[in-house]
Design a binder for these strands. Structure first.
Ligand SMILES: [Zn+2]
Ligand SMILES: [Zn+2]
Ligand SMILES: [Zn+2]
Ligand SMILES: [Zn+2]
Lengths: 166, 166
DNA sequence: GGGTGTAATGTAATGTTATAACGTATGGCG
DNA sequence: CGCCATACGTTATAACATTACATTACACCC
C-alpha cells in the first residue's frame, strides 16, 4: 500500500502494492520497547501476514491463515491487532471491518485519507492538509471540537480504472 | 441533529437536537412513490423512532424499542433501514454501527462530514466543499477515482465541551 | 537458582451486528 | 378474480468482536 508501484517488487498480485515489512516491524519493536511490552511471535506473525498481503483482510481470515497444527483463535488475533494499531503499524478500515498494515509514520494530528478500491480492495493512504482545514472549518460553524477524524473513500484505484477502460 | 439549537423545541434531551420528522417522512413517501414501492408501517415506525431519538442507535436497539406484543425482528429493521437509506432519510455511522435520521436534502456528489460527539453521541452534519477539494486533490496524486467518501469525525459537541469546562 | 509481579497466552463461552433462505401475505392492475 | 411484484414473518446462520478466567512466560530482584 501507499508506495510507488515497483515493477521489480516480489508481489505477484498485480493489484497489491507491497509495504516495507522491515520498517514496520522495527516500528512495532521500538513501540514495544518504549512501553515496556514485547513484540511477541504472535504479533510478529499477524503483522508479517498483513504486510505480505498488502490489502485489508478480516480478523478471522488472519486467524485462518495463521492456523497450522495449532489453531489460532480470533481473540488472539484481535489482541495482536490492538497492539499493532497502538504501535501505528496497522489500521482498521471501518467500512469493511478489515485490517491492513501501514508503513507510514503518521505525524501527530495528521489527517489521513484512506482510498479503498472497490475492485481490488487495495488501500492507498494520503495525508491532506486541505482536508484537515476543511474539517476544522466544518467543525467551527457548529462549535464542534474534532479529535479523531476517520476518512474512507471508496472508488477505483488507477490500475483498476485503467483496466476497466481498456 | 444538524439543525440550529432551538430552546423551544420539544426535546427533553439536552444533548439531542430534534430533526424535522414531517419533512423526512414526506421525503420517504415521495421516494417510495418514485420507485413504485411503499412507505409501509414498519418503515414509518423505524423512521419515526430514529427521528424522535435524534442520535444514532443500533439496529437491535430499534428492534427492541419497537417490540410490543409482537416482537420486531432485527431482520425487519435492517430491511426498513435499507429502504430508508436509499430514500436518503437515514445514514449509517460506520464507526459505531449505528443509524440515525437526517432531514437534509444532500445534493448529488455533496461531501458530508459527520461529527460525532464522544460524550453524548449526537451527530452533526456539515457539507464541506473544502474537504471535497482536499479529497479530489489527494486522489489525483495517485490516480484514484473517488466515488463514495465517508467522513466521520469523533470529538466533542459544543454543549459537551462547554459543560466539561465549567 | 528461587520468588515475585506484570504481560501475554490458551481456551471457552458469549455478545453483537448483519444476512440468507423460504414460505406467506398484501396490494395494485388488467 | 388471477397475476405479479413487493413486503413481511420466521428461522437459521454468518460475520465480527469481546468477556472471563485459568495458565504460562518473562523481566527483575534477591
Ligand atoms: Zn497509515
Ligand atoms: Zn483496484
Ligand atoms: Zn444527512
Ligand atoms: Zn455532546
Amino acid at each position: 500500500m501507499h508506495r510507488d508501484p515497483d515493477p521489480s517488487a516480489a508481489c505477484t498480485h498485480a493489484h497489491c502494492d507491497v509495504i516495507d515489512a522491515e520498517a514496520v516491524q522495527s516500528r512495532a519493536r521500538s513501540y514495544a520497547a518504549s512501553k515496556g511490552t514485547r513484540f511477541t511471535p504472535t504479533r510478529q506473525r499477524v503483522l508479517a501476514l498483513l504486510a505480505a498481503t498488502g490489502k485489508p483482510i478480516a480478523a478471522y481470515e488472519i486467524a485462518e491463515k495463521l492456523s497450522g497444527s495449532r489453531k489460532v483463535q480470533a481473540v488472539q488475533v484481535y489482541r495482536a491487532l490492538e497492539f499493532l494499531q497502538e504501535a501505528g503499524c496497522v489500521h482498521r478500515l471501518a467500512s469493511r471491518s478489515a485490517f491492513f498494515a501501514c508503513d507510514h509514520r503518521h505525524g501527530e494530528g495528521e489527517t489521513v485519507v484512506f482510498m479503498v478500491c472497490s475492485q481490488c480492495g487495495a488501500v492507498q493512504e494520503a495525508a491532506s492538509d486541505l482536508v484537515a482545514r476543511g474539517l476544522r472549518g466544518a467543525a467551527k460553524t457548529t462549535g464542534f471540537r474534532p479529535r479523531h477524524p476517520m476518512i474512507e473513500v471508496e472508488g477505483e484505484c488507477a490500475k483498476c480504472a485503467g483496466e476497466s477502460v481498456s
